[in-house]
Design a binder for these strands. Structure first.
Lengths: 209, 209
DNA sequence: GCAACAATAGACAGAGCTGTCTTGTTTTTT
DNA sequence: AAAAAACAAGACAGCTCTGTCTATTGTTGC
């Protein structure tokens, strides 16, 4: 269970996670520690004291910034979502070429994500898996995250002039989730390429029609 | 948090879960209760006493049959896996027609699963999401489950004479995971059909080559 | 009938959990 | 320099958790 901060600090290159940012204020230190622990050991399994020890802060400080553990979980999820989406969409915005190329580049960026030694799957998928019916705030946060991704996908699909924009976005969403879970379970980043091939097949099929 | 057994008993028609079997021995009663609670509220969040109350058994009985909570979790996962695979592959074995039809029928059966009001996602995906690096036995159990599915998929792919059996099986696995997660998050069973369309596109693409 | 087993009921220990509170110190702002 | 905010350190209450243990009651096989 002991989880040395060292092996994590060696991953500081990973810029897709809030937990990789070097914290300045005590609030950031708490968020960073909580982010890492929640994502690697689960939300329920991570105690407040463990977070405090890792963050090197006092308990009163935590409860000064967050009114409860649930509140902290919500804050961590939101921060992780923001950081990840900035990273992900930023990478994609830099892709040159037509919409099809950019849309398929999704899976190249995914593969980079999967290849990071600190990859632990999608925090939202993991959170919903843990709480399921228990925590509605978590479900809503995950929903919002997925909505952001769907919106981006739809914008690309419109540019691509596919016949059914919504269905293409949904298809890509399924491939995204599937690749994430497969890569998380097997620790094999190449599932991103498997998903990419299917995305190509899908676009070929709907565009030639 | 209270979780009336009634609303669950109304789902006793769902035969894909161990938790839907009517228990006879005390051991079964514990397994059934644990199965339901673990899958609906998470593993860490479910206490032993909660399981005992639901099962209506004594604590000593639980620790007579299982040496620890971890042991119980392992047993529940194995039972859930067996029950689910029997149901899933049983349904598929009953499908008439060529291998392609049977392989695509995977997603029809999935949609039935997703449509069950008691659907909570895949226990193995949820378990790995919750424990991640924490519990190796859980990872191994999930691996074994995925291996069973991949084996079945490969057998179909061989019958279908696709050029790359392994890659087709991997592709279907990604679609499976993706559909499960998407359906779990949105509670929209039609993601199974989205996945099915992509599976068709994939088979079309690799078979015409 | 009797021995072996399975199950019940519940007290109990030891630990961990969340969250509150106090007291003092450091940092920032004005 | 003075006032205000942020933080550290840790005791504490109240609860829940896992797992053990004792004492007792059914149930089954021989």
């Amino acid at each position: 269970m002991e989880d040395s901060p060292q092996d994590f600090c060696s991953l500081q290159t990973s810029d897709w996670s809030f937990a990789a940012m070097e914290p300045k204020t005590a609030r950031d230190k708490i968020m960073t520690a909580a982010s890492h622990l929640f994502c690697n050991h689960g939300f329920a399994a991570t105690g407040i004291d463990t977070i405090l020890t890792r963050a090197g802060t006092a308990k009163a400080t935590l409860y000064h910034h967050f009114k409860s553990k649930e509140d902290l979980i919500a804050a961590v999820l939101e921060a992780e979502g923001n950081t990840w989406r900035n990273w992900f969409f930023g990478r994609l915005a830099a892709v040159e070429g037509p919409a099809r190329t950019r849309m398929l580049a999704v899976f190249d960026v995914l593969e980079d994500w999967f290849s990071d030694p600190g990859f632990y799957g999608c925090p939202f998928i993991n959170a919903v898996a843990e709480f399921d019916t228990g925590n509605d705030a978590v479900r809503k946060a995950a929903e919002k995250h997925k909505e952001h991704i769907l919106t981006w996908l739809k914008a690309q699909a419109i540019e691509l002039k596919v016949p059914d924009v919504t269905e293409t976005a949904r298809s890509f969403a399924v491939l995204l989730d599937g690749a994430i879970v497969a890569a998380q379970h097997t620790r094999d980043p190449s599932f991103a390429r498997t998903a990419k091939h299917m995305a190509e097949h899908h676009l070929d099929a709907v565009q030639k029609a």
